[in-house]
Amino acid sequence: MKGVSFLMTVAILALASSFVSAYDPSPLQDFCVAINDIKSGVFVNGKFCKDPAQVTANDFSFSGLNIPGNTGNKVGSNVTLVNVDKLPGLNTLGISLARLDFTPYGLNPPHTHPRGTELFVVIEGTFLVGFVTSNPNKLFTKVLNKGDVFVFPIGLIHFQFNIGETIGLAFAGLSSQNPGVITIANAVFGSVPPINPDVLIKAFQLDKNVVEYLQKAFTPK
């Protein structure tokens, strides 16, 4: 019996420990406006909290999403993200917003958000969108028109492609104050320092010259 009692005690303590270390998805205060001054803040959820007595309405406001982003790049798209770094009042609230602008046939290349699910809303344009599941990598894809909504689950590779002959506009809500983004081609072929070419040659079954070309094309200038 003593042995059983001891095991029960260990199990209860382990369970209690797991509850203590579990992530709390909800803030435990009305707000925690982010501040960079560590001398006048309290550290919570990756940002320091501004003294509530010093908080103003401006901490909860952002202007500029009415302005189209610069799509003059190789892929013909631009993402204007409003996360906790641009809107301090988002800190601990678990949400952010983005405006996505596209040229005709502009593409938001395959990418992931490691910390957030994305809800994509089409305002103008016709989009081919999709995401790929974890192994065995099934593709879910659909053509969206004005007013349509599509959700990309957290962490999965996804894309948005404006297949129309007019400019495209969409807004996206993300379930994180700082969802992050990993653009697949840039991460694989443009990392700094670069991934050993032999790794990429074997992983993608490509010729060495092709790998070297891709690394040169995607490495930041």
Results as ranks from 00 to 15, higher is better:
K2I: 14
K2P: 03
V4S: 10
S5C: 15
F6V: 15
L7D: 12
A14Q: 09
A16C: 14
A16L: 15
S17H: 14
S18A: 11
V20A: 09
S21K: 11
Y23D: 11
P25D: 01
S26G: 12
P27G: 05
Q29K: 10
D30L: 11
C32Y: 05
A34T: 01
I35T: 14
N36D: 12
F48V: 06
D51I: 07
V55K: 05
V55I: 09
T56Y: 00
D59Y: 10
F60H: 03
F60E: 08
S61Y: 10
F62I: 04
S63V: 13
L65P: 12
G72I: 08
G76W: 04
N83F: 07
V84M: 00
L87F: 03
L87S: 02
G89Y: 02
N91G: 04
T92G: 03
L93D: 09
L93Y: 04
I95V: 13
L97M: 08
R99K: 06
T103I: 15
P104Y: 05
P109K: 01
H111F: 00
H113T: 00
H113W: 02
H113I: 00
P114D: 07
I123Y: 15
E124H: 14
G125H: 01
T126E: 14
F127N: 01
F127Y: 11
G130D: 01
S134V: 13
L139S: 07
T141V: 06
L144D: 01
L144W: 00
G147I: 05
F150Y: 05
F150A: 03
V151H: 04
V151Y: 07
F152A: 00
I157Q: 09
H158W: 08
F161D: 02
G164V: 07
E165P: 09
G168F: 00
G168Q: 02
G168E: 00
L169C: 02
A172T: 08
L174V: 08
S175I: 03
S175H: 02
Q177A: 07
V181S: 05
I182H: 08
I184S: 10
V188M: 02
F189V: 04
G190L: 03
V192L: 09
P193Q: 03
P194Q: 11
P194H: 08
I195V: 13
I195K: 06
P197R: 07
D198I: 11
D198L: 12
L200N: 01
K202L: 10
K202Q: 14
A203D: 01
F204V: 04
L206I: 00
L206Y: 09
D207T: 02
K208N: 09
V211W: 03
E212H: 10
Y213S: 08
A217W: 13
A217H: 14
F218Y: 11
T219I: 12
K221Y: 10
